[in-house]
Amino acid sequence: MKKAVTMFRLFAGQPFGKTVLSLIALLVIGLIGMTHSASAQAREKLGYGLLLTNDTLGDFEDRWQTGSITASRIWGPAWMGELPTEAGAILELRSHGRVIGPSNLVYFNPDDRRYAGIVSFGLHTHFQRGGADIALGTDLVMTGPQTGVSQVQTAMHDIMGINPPSQSVLSNQIENGFHPTFVGEVGRGYSLGSIAEVRPFAELRVGDETLGRVGFDLTFGQYGQGGLLVRDPVTGHRYEVIRGGQDGFSFLLGGDLTQMESSIYLPESTGPEMEETRARLRAGGNFQRGNLSLFYGTSWLQEEFEGQPEGQFVGATQLKFSF
C-alpha cells in the first residue's frame, strides 16, 4: 500500500522521504548546538516523571497496545513556573519500553498484528515562542529480540501464571532494527475562566511511525499549571515531570485524530494493512496533596489495522512523591 499523503509534503514537489532525513539530521545538529549554547547557564535537575500504561488497567485484556513504561528526567536553569524562550535550555532525557502483541499470544494468526518489543532513548527540549509551547526531540527506537522485551514479558507471565508469548508468535515478531525518530509538538493553552483550560495541539512524528496529529486537552482544575507535562506516545495522556498546580483534584479530557503515512509495526510486506486514520479519546483525574500526586487515566484507541475487530481501552497511571 503506497499512497502519498499530501499533508506530509513539507516542500512543494519534494518527496517526503528525502525531507525526513534532512529534518532528523538538522534536528540532531540543532539539539547538539543548543545544548552547547545553553551550557554556560547553571543547570540542575528540575524533575522526573514515570508513566505506566497497560490494557489490563483499561479493558482488562492482554492484546495489541498491551503495555508500556515511559520515564523522563528534566534538567535546566532554575524553574520559574514557565518554559524559557531559548530552545535547549530545558533538556529532557526520555526512555521508553513497550510491548505490542496480537490478541492471542499462544497461536500465531497471520491476520492479526505481529508481536513487537520496543525500547527507545531520546533527547528532547521544551520552550515557548509567541505564547505557544514547543517540544522538539529525537529518539533512537530499537525493535526486535535484541531489546529483551519478550524475555521480560515471558518472565512476568510465568510469575503470574499467565500464558507467555509462544515460540510461533515470537518467531514472527517485528525484526531487529534501529529507527532514528523525530518528534515535534506545538500547543497553546487558553483559559476558560478560573477553573478550566483548553489546549489545542499539533504533532509530527517521523521515523518508526510517520504521522501527523491534531487534537486538544481540556483540564478542569490546577493540574500542570506552573509545571511541565510531557505527552505519552501510546495513550496521548500528558504526565507530570515538573510539579505545578495546587492541592486538590483535577479532571482531564482530550482527544486527537491521526493521519498515518507508515508504521514499522504494521509493515506492508506481511500481516494486515495499517489503517490510515486513527482516533484517540481520553479521560483522567489527578489528585494532589502536599508531597503526593496521583494520576489515573484511560484512553480509547480506535482500530489501528484492517481486520481489527474493535478498538481498545488502555489505562495509564503515575504516582509521585516530592521530597
Rank of each mutant, 00 (worst) to 15 (best):
S194W: 00
F127P: 07
A279N: 02
Q173W: 07
G117E: 09
L57V: 04
V230R: 05
M160I: 01
A71T: 12
A202R: 06
Q128C: 11
T6P: 07
R238F: 02
G189F: 09
S263I: 00
Q153T: 01
F216R: 02
E306M: 14
I29L: 15
A155V: 07
L319A: 10
A132N: 04
R199T: 06
G187T: 02
D217N: 12
A42M: 14
T258C: 13
V20R: 15
A135V: 12
I134D: 08
L204Y: 08
L83Y: 06
V20P: 00
G101P: 01
H237N: 08
V241E: 03
Y48A: 14
G81F: 15
R43V: 05
P165S: 04
G47P: 06
S72V: 10
D59I: 07
T35H: 13
L218C: 04
R188F: 02
T154A: 11
I100Y: 10
I90A: 04
T19N: 06
G117N: 10
L266D: 00
Y115P: 04
L31A: 03
V186W: 10
S72A: 12
L257Y: 14
G271A: 11
Q312L: 07
V230M: 04
R282S: 04
H179M: 03
T258Y: 05
T147H: 03
L253P: 05
G30R: 03
V314H: 13
L140C: 02
Q41K: 15
R205E: 10
L294E: 06
M142Q: 11
L218R: 06
L52M: 12
S120C: 00
H237Q: 13
Y296T: 14
G137W: 01
H179R: 09
V141L: 05
L23N: 03
V198T: 07
Q246P: 03
G227Q: 07
G17E: 06
Y223R: 08
